[in-house]
Simulated scan of single mutants.
Amino acid sequence: MKFKNIAIAFGVGLAGGYVLQKSLQKSQLSPEQVMQIVKRAAKKSLNIDGAWVYLTPEDYYQNGLSYKVYKGGLTAKDGENLEHFDFIADASTGTILDLKAQ
């Protein structure tokens, strides 16, 4: 009887630890999801013509903080001219951390 209680307690503890680990892990968006978030935000002020994103997240440091980010670019039409922008976006939230015209 004692062994059965110990086995049940071990199983419950193992399952609880697994669930807790999964909930504490920081989720990361796919590059495509980040691209859609960036394009949606940029469309408010730019006429987006094209976009690209690197598929591998990178470490990025800004103002003493560390981020996992995706880097990419946008092409926007300004009348007849095309303008290129580079962006850096947080891989967890899609928040644009940097957007520069080239």
Rank of each mutant, 00 (worst) to 15 (best):
I6G: 05
Y67L: 02
E58C: 03
Q28S: 11
Q25R: 08
K100R: 13
L14M: 14
Y61I: 09
K22I: 13
Y70W: 05
I37D: 02
Y60T: 08
V53R: 04
G94I: 05
G17F: 12
D49N: 00
G16M: 12
T93P: 10
K2S: 14
L46P: 04
I8T: 11
S30L: 11
F87E: 08
K68W: 11
Q33L: 06
S92V: 04
M1R: 12
T93Q: 07
L55F: 00
F85E: 15
S92I: 02
G13M: 09
T75V: 12
L55M: 07
Y67G: 02
A89V: 06
S23K: 13
A42L: 08
L55D: 12
K22G: 09
Y70P: 08
A7K: 12
F87M: 12
K43A: 14
A101E: 14
Q33W: 03
V69E: 07
L55R: 04
I48T: 08
R40W: 01
K39E: 10
R40L: 09
Y18T: 15
K68A: 09
I48C: 09
L14N: 02
A89D: 07
E58N: 10
L82T: 10
A76Y: 08
K26E: 09
S27D: 09
V34C: 02
A101Q: 15
L65C: 04
G64D: 05
L82Q: 11
V12L: 15
V19K: 11
K26R: 10
A41L: 04
G73P: 01
A76P: 04
T95Y: 02
D90Y: 00
E58K: 11
Q28Y: 13
Q25N: 14
L20P: 08
I88M: 05
L74R: 01
E83Y: 03
K2E: 13
I88H: 03
H84E: 15
D78F: 03
A76K: 06
T56V: 07
Q33C: 02
L65A: 06
Y60C: 07
K77Y: 11
I6L: 10
